[in-house]
Computed example of a mutant assay.
Amino acid sequence: MKLKVLLIGLVSISLLAACSGESTTEEMYGHLEEAVELENEFVSQQQPLNELEEQEQAIYQEITTLGMDDMEQIISLADEALQSIEERKELLVAEKESIDASKEEFDKIEPLISDIEDETVQTNANEMYEIMEERYQAYINLHDTYVVSLENDQALYELLKQEELEEDAVTEQIDKVNAQYEKVIEANNTFSETTDAFNESKKTFYESTDLNVTYE
Protein backbone atom coordinates (compact mmCIF):
# COMPACT_ATOMS: atom_id res chain seq x y z
CA MET A 1 0.00 0.00 0.00
CA LYS A 2 3.00 2.30 -0.26
CA LEU A 3 4.77 4.19 -2.96
CA LYS A 4 8.10 5.89 -3.17
CA VAL A 5 7.81 9.30 -4.80
CA LEU A 6 10.96 10.30 -6.63
CA LEU A 7 11.03 13.86 -7.90
CA ILE A 8 13.61 15.19 -10.33
CA GLY A 9 14.83 18.75 -10.28
CA LEU A 10 15.94 21.38 -12.72
CA VAL A 11 19.29 21.07 -14.50
CA SER A 12 21.89 23.70 -13.71
CA ILE A 13 23.73 25.26 -16.66
CA SER A 14 26.84 27.43 -16.33
CA LEU A 15 27.73 30.49 -18.36
CA LEU A 16 31.35 30.19 -19.44
CA ALA A 17 31.86 33.80 -20.38
CA ALA A 18 29.65 36.87 -20.46
CA CYS A 19 29.77 39.58 -23.08
CA SER A 20 30.52 43.15 -22.15
CA GLY A 21 27.20 44.73 -21.23
CA GLU A 22 24.38 42.43 -20.20
CA SER A 23 22.15 41.33 -23.07
CA THR A 24 18.50 40.33 -22.73
CA THR A 25 19.39 36.63 -22.96
CA GLU A 26 22.10 37.04 -20.32
CA GLU A 27 19.59 38.70 -18.01
CA MET A 28 17.20 35.81 -18.65
CA TYR A 29 20.03 33.37 -17.95
CA GLY A 30 20.53 34.99 -14.54
CA HIS A 31 16.88 34.54 -13.58
CA LEU A 32 16.72 30.99 -14.97
CA GLU A 33 19.75 29.74 -13.08
CA GLU A 34 18.74 31.55 -9.90
CA ALA A 35 15.44 29.67 -10.17
CA VAL A 36 17.44 26.43 -10.20
CA GLU A 37 19.31 27.49 -7.06
CA LEU A 38 16.05 28.32 -5.30
CA GLU A 39 14.85 24.74 -5.92
CA ASN A 40 17.76 23.28 -3.95
CA GLU A 41 15.59 23.26 -0.84
CA PHE A 42 12.92 21.36 -2.76
CA VAL A 43 15.48 18.77 -3.84
CA SER A 44 16.85 18.41 -0.30
CA GLN A 45 13.39 17.43 1.01
CA GLN A 46 13.15 14.34 -1.19
CA GLN A 47 15.45 12.00 0.75
CA PRO A 48 13.89 12.65 4.19
CA LEU A 49 10.41 12.34 2.64
CA ASN A 50 11.29 8.96 1.17
CA GLU A 51 12.88 7.81 4.43
CA LEU A 52 9.73 8.73 6.34
CA GLU A 53 7.61 6.87 3.79
CA GLU A 54 9.73 3.76 4.26
CA GLN A 55 9.50 4.15 8.03
CA GLU A 56 5.72 4.36 7.86
CA GLN A 57 5.56 1.33 5.57
CA ALA A 58 7.60 -0.71 8.07
CA ILE A 59 5.25 0.38 10.86
CA TYR A 60 2.19 -0.58 8.83
CA GLN A 61 3.63 -3.98 8.00
CA GLU A 62 4.30 -4.59 11.69
CA ILE A 63 0.75 -3.59 12.61
CA THR A 64 -0.65 -6.11 10.11
CA THR A 65 1.11 -8.92 11.98
CA LEU A 66 -0.60 -8.06 15.26
CA GLY A 67 -3.98 -9.11 16.61
CA MET A 68 -6.55 -7.47 18.88
CA ASP A 69 -4.71 -8.87 21.90
CA ASP A 70 -1.83 -6.57 20.97
CA MET A 71 -3.93 -3.40 21.06
CA GLU A 72 -1.49 -1.48 23.24
CA GLN A 73 1.33 -2.14 20.77
CA ILE A 74 -0.92 -1.29 17.80
CA ILE A 75 -1.79 2.07 19.35
CA SER A 76 1.87 2.80 20.03
CA LEU A 77 2.85 1.95 16.44
CA ALA A 78 -0.07 3.93 15.00
CA ASP A 79 1.09 6.96 17.01
CA GLU A 80 4.57 6.55 15.52
CA ALA A 81 3.06 6.48 12.04
CA LEU A 82 0.99 9.59 12.79
CA GLN A 83 4.13 11.40 13.95
CA SER A 84 5.83 10.41 10.69
CA ILE A 85 2.92 11.87 8.75
CA GLU A 86 3.18 15.17 10.65
CA GLU A 87 6.88 15.33 9.85
CA ARG A 88 6.15 14.77 6.16
CA LYS A 89 3.59 17.57 6.22
CA GLU A 90 6.29 19.91 7.53
CA LEU A 91 8.69 18.83 4.78
CA LEU A 92 5.98 19.46 2.19
CA VAL A 93 5.63 23.05 3.42
CA ALA A 94 9.36 23.65 2.92
CA GLU A 95 9.21 21.89 -0.46
CA LYS A 96 6.36 24.06 -1.74
CA GLU A 97 7.97 27.27 -0.46
CA SER A 98 11.07 26.37 -2.48
CA ILE A 99 9.06 25.68 -5.65
CA ASP A 100 7.07 28.91 -5.21
CA ALA A 101 10.25 30.96 -4.75
CA SER A 102 11.79 29.36 -7.83
CA LYS A 103 8.66 30.05 -9.88
CA GLU A 104 8.59 33.68 -8.75
CA GLU A 105 12.19 34.12 -9.91
CA PHE A 106 11.50 32.31 -13.18
CA ASP A 107 8.53 34.56 -13.95
CA LYS A 108 10.91 37.53 -14.14
CA ILE A 109 11.88 36.38 -17.64
CA GLU A 110 8.36 36.90 -19.02
CA PRO A 111 8.63 40.67 -19.70
CA LEU A 112 12.09 40.11 -21.23
CA ILE A 113 10.91 37.66 -23.91
CA SER A 114 9.30 40.39 -26.01
CA ASP A 115 12.67 42.23 -26.09
CA ILE A 116 14.37 39.35 -27.92
CA GLU A 117 14.95 40.39 -31.53
CA ASP A 118 15.75 36.99 -33.03
CA GLU A 119 12.49 35.28 -33.95
CA THR A 120 13.79 31.74 -33.36
CA VAL A 121 15.21 32.62 -29.96
CA GLN A 122 11.96 34.34 -28.98
CA THR A 123 9.93 31.30 -30.07
CA ASN A 124 12.15 29.00 -28.02
CA ALA A 125 11.85 31.32 -25.03
CA ASN A 126 8.06 31.32 -25.27
CA GLU A 127 7.95 27.52 -25.50
CA MET A 128 10.25 27.25 -22.49
CA TYR A 129 8.04 29.62 -20.50
CA GLU A 130 4.86 27.72 -21.39
CA ILE A 131 6.42 24.39 -20.36
CA MET A 132 7.47 25.84 -17.01
CA GLU A 133 3.89 27.01 -16.46
CA GLU A 134 2.73 23.45 -17.14
CA ARG A 135 5.39 22.11 -14.78
CA TYR A 136 4.31 24.42 -11.97
CA GLN A 137 0.66 23.40 -12.36
CA ALA A 138 1.76 19.76 -12.41
CA TYR A 139 3.61 20.32 -9.13
CA ILE A 140 0.60 22.00 -7.51
CA ASN A 141 -1.55 19.03 -8.52
CA LEU A 142 1.06 16.61 -7.15
CA HIS A 143 1.37 18.55 -3.90
CA ASP A 144 -2.39 18.72 -3.35
CA THR A 145 -2.83 15.04 -4.25
CA TYR A 146 -0.06 14.04 -1.85
CA VAL A 147 -1.59 16.10 0.97
CA VAL A 148 -4.89 14.22 0.53
CA SER A 149 -2.91 10.98 0.57
CA LEU A 150 -1.38 11.91 3.92
CA GLU A 151 -4.81 12.79 5.28
CA ASN A 152 -6.09 9.37 4.20
CA ASP A 153 -3.11 7.69 5.89
CA GLN A 154 -3.82 9.69 9.02
CA ALA A 155 -7.46 8.59 9.04
CA LEU A 156 -6.39 4.96 8.67
CA TYR A 157 -4.07 5.03 11.68
CA GLU A 158 -6.66 6.83 13.80
CA LEU A 159 -9.07 4.05 12.84
CA LEU A 160 -6.58 1.33 13.77
CA LYS A 161 -6.28 2.83 17.25
CA GLN A 162 -9.95 2.19 17.98
CA GLU A 163 -10.58 -0.82 20.21
CA GLU A 164 -14.06 -1.36 18.75
CA LEU A 165 -12.65 -1.89 15.28
CA GLU A 166 -14.97 -2.70 12.38
CA GLU A 167 -13.29 -4.68 9.62
CA ASP A 168 -15.47 -3.13 6.89
CA ALA A 169 -14.46 0.37 7.96
CA VAL A 170 -10.76 -0.54 7.84
CA THR A 171 -11.12 -2.20 4.42
CA GLU A 172 -12.96 0.85 3.08
CA GLN A 173 -10.24 3.20 4.35
CA ILE A 174 -7.44 1.03 2.93
CA ASP A 175 -9.19 1.11 -0.46
CA LYS A 176 -9.35 4.90 -0.21
CA VAL A 177 -5.66 5.05 0.69
CA ASN A 178 -4.66 2.86 -2.25
CA ALA A 179 -6.84 4.76 -4.72
CA GLN A 180 -5.21 8.03 -3.67
CA TYR A 181 -1.74 6.50 -3.98
CA GLU A 182 -2.55 5.74 -7.61
CA LYS A 183 -3.41 9.39 -8.13
CA VAL A 184 -0.12 10.42 -6.50
CA ILE A 185 1.84 8.13 -8.81
CA GLU A 186 0.08 9.57 -11.85
CA ALA A 187 0.64 13.15 -10.69
CA ASN A 188 4.28 12.39 -9.92
CA ASN A 189 4.82 10.97 -13.42
CA THR A 190 3.29 14.09 -14.98
CA PHE A 191 5.52 16.35 -12.90
CA SER A 192 8.63 14.34 -13.80
CA GLU A 193 7.71 14.46 -17.50
CA THR A 194 7.19 18.21 -17.47
CA THR A 195 10.48 18.68 -15.59
CA ASP A 196 12.30 16.68 -18.27
CA ALA A 197 10.52 18.69 -20.96
CA PHE A 198 11.51 21.97 -19.33
CA ASN A 199 15.15 20.97 -18.97
CA GLU A 200 15.20 20.12 -22.68
CA SER A 201 13.43 23.33 -23.66
CA LYS A 202 15.88 25.41 -21.63
CA LYS A 203 18.78 23.68 -23.35
CA THR A 204 17.19 24.38 -26.75
CA PHE A 205 16.71 28.02 -25.79
CA TYR A 206 20.31 28.46 -24.67
CA GLU A 207 21.65 26.75 -27.78
CA SER A 208 19.68 29.13 -29.99
CA THR A 209 21.25 32.18 -28.30
CA ASP A 210 24.82 33.49 -28.44
CA LEU A 211 25.34 32.50 -24.81
CA ASN A 212 28.44 30.39 -24.13
CA VAL A 213 27.11 27.75 -21.72
CA THR A 214 28.19 24.38 -20.39
CA TYR A 215 25.90 21.64 -19.05
CA GLU A 216 26.49 20.16 -15.59
Rank of each mutant, 00 (worst) to 15 (best):
E54C: 03
E54F: 05
E56P: 01
E56G: 10
A58F: 02
I59A: 02
I59Q: 03
Y60P: 06
Y60A: 13
E62W: 12
E62Y: 12
I63N: 07
T64N: 06
T64K: 15
T65K: 15
T65D: 14
T65Y: 08
T65A: 13
L66A: 07
G67A: 13
G67E: 12
G67S: 15
G67L: 13
D70G: 06
M71Y: 05
M71S: 07
M71R: 10
E72T: 14
E72A: 10
I74N: 03
I75T: 10
A78K: 06
A78Q: 09
A78P: 05
D79M: 00
E80I: 02
E80S: 15
A81W: 07
L82P: 10
Q83I: 07
S84K: 01
I85H: 06
I85K: 08
E87V: 01
K89A: 03
E90K: 14
L91G: 09
L92Y: 14
L92H: 12
L92G: 15
L92I: 04
V93C: 00
A94W: 01
A94Y: 03
A94P: 01
A94D: 03
E95T: 00
K96T: 07
K96C: 00
K96N: 09
E97T: 08
E97G: 05
E97N: 15
S98M: 04
S98N: 02
I99Q: 11
D100N: 11
S102M: 09
K103I: 04
K103P: 02
K103V: 10
E104N: 10
E104S: 15
E105C: 06
F106R: 07
D107G: 03
K108E: 03
K108M: 02
E110F: 05
E110G: 00
P111I: 05
P111V: 03
L112W: 03
I113M: 06
I116P: 11
I116R: 11
I116E: 09
I116M: 13
E117A: 15
E117V: 15
E117L: 14
E117R: 13
E119C: 04
E119I: 13
E119V: 11
T120E: 14
T120N: 11
T120K: 15
Q122S: 09
Q122F: 02
N124E: 07
N124V: 00
A125S: 14
A125V: 05
N126T: 10
E127K: 10
E127P: 00
E127I: 04
E127D: 11
M128G: 01
Y129F: 14
E130L: 14
I131A: 08
E133I: 08
E134M: 13
E134S: 15
R135N: 11
R135K: 14
Q137I: 00
